[in-house]
Simulated assay, not measured.
Amino acid sequence: MPKEFSSADIDAVYSVIANRRDVRHFIPGEVSEEVLLRLLTAAHQAPSVGLMQPWRFIRIKDGAVREQICQIVDDERQATAAALGDRGDAFMRLKVEGIRECGEVLVAALMDRRERHVFGRRTLPEMDLASVACAIQNMWLASRAEGLGMGWVSLFDPARLAGLLGIPDGAKPVAILCLGHVTAFYTKPMLELEGWARPASLDALLSTDRWRPDPQPC
């Protein structure tokens, strides 16, 4: 018989999923080595197509390197604001990262192993990236269960960050992960609280048997 979970266990899983947040605001405090190892282990237990395990994690401990990462992110933030046109000023008011404040910074990278792992990738080559995303989500949920905040920062030039961290050809950084203590978790996604965007309902994104076009905005 499959292993059974108690009702409390099941409720806890759904509660962690519902209360996970992309965190940008942190308070000082180190993440213990024991907890960090648990979080990385959770990430490493993620599913991966063909068992390729394409994720690589780089822990940033050097303060000077962390500051250089901040500069890379800020440069892209400025470029994104310029690309947004009329919404640029509103975007610049958003807090998009917590690299300086968080207890730990990790960079998640994708290792291109498609030559060795054709399983599941012949028609969907993106599955290696999907596998890395599963690892990050595992860490996100485990962090929330541990009472720690985590934020996924995607505003950076991948080639520039790869150069800074010595990431070789055939690999690519896909996320800067900020991890640390918080005073409280956002009651809703931060971008919703800031009025930047609203999440769609499940009903709007679910169809049966055939694709249903998205409703036209009013």
Rank of each mutant, 00 (worst) to 15 (best):
Gly63Phe: 04
Leu84Phe: 14
Glu101Val: 10
Asp75Lys: 05
Gln71Arg: 14
Ile69Phe: 09
Glu97Pro: 03
Ile58Met: 10
Val96Trp: 00
Phe57Trp: 11
Ile58Cys: 09
Arg77Met: 01
Met92Gln: 14
Arg100Phe: 08
Ala82Gln: 15
Arg59Thr: 04
Glu97Lys: 05
Gly98Met: 07
Gln68Leu: 13
Gln78Pro: 10
Gln53Trp: 03
Gly85Pro: 05
Lys95Ala: 06
Met52Gly: 11
Ile58Ser: 06
Gln53Ala: 14
Arg59His: 10
Ala64Pro: 04
Gln78Cys: 09
Leu51Gln: 03
Asp75Met: 06
Ala81Thr: 12
Ala83Cys: 07
Gly63Ser: 03
Met52Gln: 12
Val73Met: 00
Pro54Leu: 01
Met52Lys: 13
Arg87Thr: 09
Glu67Asp: 10
Ile69Asn: 10
Lys95Thr: 12
Glu97Asn: 15
Asp62Gln: 12
Val49Glu: 05
Ala64Ile: 12
Gln71Leu: 07
Leu84Arg: 06
Asp62Pro: 03
Gln53Asp: 03
Ile60Leu: 00
Leu51Asn: 12
Ile58Lys: 04
Arg56His: 04
Ala81Trp: 07
Glu67Pro: 02
Arg87Leu: 03
Ala83Gln: 12
Val73Asn: 07
Pro54Tyr: 01
Ala81Arg: 09
Gln78Val: 15
Met92Tyr: 00
Phe57His: 05
Ala64His: 04
Ile60Met: 01
Glu76Trp: 14
Gly98Val: 04
Trp55Val: 01
Gly98Thr: 07
Gln53Pro: 01
Ala90Met: 05
Ile58Gln: 04
Gly88Glu: 10
Arg56Val: 06
Cys70Tyr: 02
Ile69Pro: 02
Gln78Ala: 15
